[in-house]
Design a protein around this nucleic acid. Sequence first.
DNA 1: CGTATGACGTGCA
DNA 2: GTGCACGCCATAC
Length: 85
Amino acid sequence: MKKLKRFSDLVYTVVRKIPKGSVLTYKEVAKRAGSPLAFRAVGTILSKNFDPAIPCHRVIRSDGAMGGYNRGISEKIRKLKSEAR
DNA sequence: CGTATGACGTGCA
DNA sequence: GTGCACGCCATAC
């Protein structure tokens, strides 16, 4: 296995572990990824990620606003609304 | 290494 | 509540 895991890989792993009906903030994800101050990088990385296996739509900003979504912000809201409980 | 970019966060007017 | 500026980190070139 590659131990040269990039911060991006950690972010993907963390986001992938987000249970349905739950949402984590970029800050939380960054913290779980190992760098609580890399929330900026989290957004940068997720923006480059186009993997549908990553529920990046469950990651929102700390103010509760939707940052964005590689497939369209509308899809993000749609998914969250669908999974929202 | 320096510069530029980005789905952020916080502070202030 | 809204808009703007600065600071933060990781990645790409």
